[in-house]
Design a protein around this nucleic acid. Structure first.
Lengths: 197, 197
DNA sequence: GTCTATATAGTGATAGAC
DNA sequence: GTCTATCACTATATAGAC
């Protein structure tokens, strides 16, 4: 019985607590302005516990990053499965990322907004990550199917989603006051009009 | 004669050297991965010289930031003066920022790409800076004149320039291999089509 | 597995000679 | 104005008791 590894056990819980506490501090103050002592204090545990679960501060950041990329990849898979056309898929992506920005701002900020290279030199750049690659693939499919004008794939992707990424950044920075989903239709119209055949 | 302050004197030169060295290191390794000792070593001077010209490391970053914002503001002024219509002005802005990305990548990276809040808490956020404000004003004028569809100003600005900002980021990160000016026409067409009346 | 106490290294910044 | 030497501090990470 002791050998059965239960999900949600006390030890696994502590790991999750460290991760969520670190995520919050990293996005609020920045990675370099957050010490391991800050994390342990905020989480109400000792520094020994932190270093029992993670081998370094960078390791904590990497665990967060990889977890978030995995979640986002799953969402992208769902979107592709549930939507037949490129137009529907891309719009669903935009809607999903806007929703996520409202409901999980820390996660979005850390995934899209942070300068990962500076504190996780070994991590895959976000631009080359699976979710971003999938977005480019959607656009490429759209070009192949004639839904989108024939143009360079990165360029088309940037035209279509560039405004979205900037809106997310502005919203996370507090520049935009209104919830992003309220602006989905308008932004989508601008973006799609620019690239549609 | 001694009282005449010459531009380009030896002392002023050293200040410039510190600033340009710091800018290069900040963009290459990040602010927090760059120590004052790194700056002094790279510049081939002593740490005393650095602290004679600047009161702190943050002070160096602020001097760089304010200098770049001033240069960019001047460029925007020039663009407004030399172009009568909103369309011409906005396209000139895009052309200029693309050129700057190729010719002064460090400057562009530090100005647009860095997380200023994390190391210069007191600095004006880039979004509220004069150059960015001027871009919004251009768009507002375009809406007033009927060149751009009637929509929320921040939204219109984001639609028009969001792709541009993302292209710059991708280029600075080495994701895009071709010079941005080569893609100006295509990107402009997408952006303008999306917002034009 | 979690704790406290500590080792070690490097940082930003200052003092004072020249 | 520029230098060298050094301070005071904080950070990451480890050791070892429980």
């Amino acid at each position: 019985m002791d050998k059965i590894k239960k999900t949600g056990s006390a030890t696994s819980d502590l790991r999750e607590i460290i991760l969520s506490t670190a995520l919050h501090l990293f996005t609020a103050k920045g990675y370099f302005n957050t010490s391991v002592h800050d994390i342990k204090r905020q989480a109400g545990i000792s520094i020994g516990a932190v270093y029992h679960h993670f081998k370094s501060k960078e390791d904590i950041a990497k665990a967060i990053y990889e977890h978030l990329l995995e979640l986002m990849t799953n969402s992208m898979d769902q979107i592709v499965q549930n939507n037949p056309t490129t137009q529907a898929r891309c719009k669903a992506v935009m809607a999903h990322l806007f929703d996520m920005t409202e409901t999980h701002p820390d996660e979005m900020s850390f995934m899209l907004h942070a300068k990962h290279k500076e504190f996780m030199p070994s991590a895959i750049p976000i631009c080359s990550s699976r979710p971003l690659t999938m977005m480019r693939e959607m656009v490429a499919q759209g070009i192949a199917d004639g839904e989108i004008r024939d143009m360079e794939i990165t360029l088309a992707t940037t035209c279509l989603f560039g405004g979205m990424f900037r809106m997310i950044n502005l919203r996370l920075d507090g520049v935009i006051q209104t919830p992003l989903p309220d602006q989905l239709e308008a932004l989508w119209e601008c973006g799609w009009t620019g690239v549609a055949r």
